[in-house]
C-alpha cells in the first residue's frame, strides 16, 4: 500500500521472562487514527516505544513510510511526533525554551512555536519555568512539542491524562483536522468514549497481544453490544 505510514511486523519484546509485546503486527495509513486500548501492563507503551524507535524489538520490524526504523535514520524519525506517557521535561527551561529545543532537534520552522503555544493555551505561561507548571500544563506542552515539525505520524501515549474537558475537546478537534490533512495517529488511551469517538480503528491489547482489531462499530457488532458504553465492548474482548 502506498499510503501506509506505519507497518509493524511480528514485533516481540521481552524483559527477562516477561514477554511485554508478543508477535504484534499492524498497519496505519495516512489520514487514519489507530487507537490502542488495554489494561495497565498490556504492552501498549512498550509497543509505542518501539514504534517511535526509542526501544528496539527483540524480533520483528517497524517500518515508517517503508523505511526500516532499525536503521535509525534521522530522515525516518522526522516523520514522527511523539508524546510519551511519562513526560520527563526540563524543569529549568521555560515552556517556550523547551519548544525551541524541540523545534531545533526536529529542524522545524520556529514560527510553529507561537502557533502551538497559542493553540494549547500556553502563551500566558510560556516564560515560566516548566518546574512551575501544573500537570495539565505539562501535558499541553508535551502535546505542543509532539505537534511541532509537521510530522506525518503522531504517536500519543495517554494524551488525555491531566487535561480538562475543554482541552480534551480541542485535542479531539485537532486530531480530526490533522487527520483531514492526511496525518496519521497512533493513540493509546484508557478513556474509551474518546477512543470510540476519535478512532478509525481500535486494537485491543491483552498480555502483549492484540486480541481484537477493527473499527469501533465492527467491534460493537462482534461483541453484540450495540448500545452499551464502549467500555463494555473493551471488557468483552479482554475478559
Amino acid at each position: 500500500m502506498t499510503d501506509t505510514l506505519l507497518r509493524v511486523e511480528g514485533v516481540i519484546k521481552r524483559f527477562g521472562p516477561l514477554t511485554a509485546v508478543d508477535n504484534v503486527s499492524l498497519a496505519v495509513s495516512a489520514g487514519e487514527v489507530f487507537s490502542l486500548a488495554g489494561a495497565n501492563g498490556a504492552g501498549k507503551s512498550t509497543l509505542i516505544r518501539m514504534i517511535t524507535g526509542i526501544s528496539e524489538p527483540d524480533s520483528g520490524s517497524v517500518f515508517i513510510k517503508d523505511e526500516d526504523l532499525t536503521h535509525r535514520l534521522p530522515s525516518t524519525k522526522r516523520h514522527l511526533g511523539y508524546l510519551p506517557e511519562e513526560l520527563v521535561l526540563y524543569e529549568r527551561l521555560t515552556g517556550r525554551e523547551y519548544l525551541e529545543l524541540v523545534a531545533g532537534l526536529k529542524e522545524a520552522d520556529p514560527t510553529e512555536i507561537s502557533n502551538e503555544l497559542a493553540y494549547f493555551e500556553l502563551a500566558v505561561v510560556q516564560n515560566k519555568l516548566v518546574g512551575e507548571y501544573s500537570l495539565g500544563m505539562r501535558k499541553k506542552l508535551g502535546l505542543a512539542a509532539a505537534m511541532i515539525g509537521r510530522a506525518e505520524l503522531l504517536v500519543l501515549d495517554e494524551p488525555l491524562n491531566g487535561l480538562d474537558v475543554e482541552m480534551m475537546r480541542r485535542l479531539r478537534e485537532r486530531i480530526e483536522s490533522e487527520r483531514s490533512a492526511g496525518r496519521a495517529f497512533v493513540i493509546s488511551s484508557h478513556v474509551m468514549s474518546f477512543v470510540e469517538r476519535v478512532s478509525d480503528r481500535v486494537g485491543i491489547m491483552r498480555s502483549g497481544k492484540i486480541v481484537a482489531e477493527g473499527a469501533p462499530a465492527d467491534l460493537r457488532t462482534l461483541s453484540k453490544l450495540s448500545t452499551a458504553p464502549f467500555e463494555d465492548v473493551f471488557f468483552y474482548f479482554v475478559k
Binding site: 524507535g53 514522527l80 510519551p84 520527563v88 521535561l89 524541540v102 532537534l105 526536529k106 512539542a145 515539525g149
Partner: peptide, 12 residues
C-alpha cells in the same frame, strides 16, 4: 532521563 527526546526526534 530526557534523552527520549533526542532519540524520538532522530538526532544523530
Amino acid at each position: 532521563p530526557h534523552m527520549w527526546l533526542e532519540r524520538a526526534a532522530g538526532t544523530t
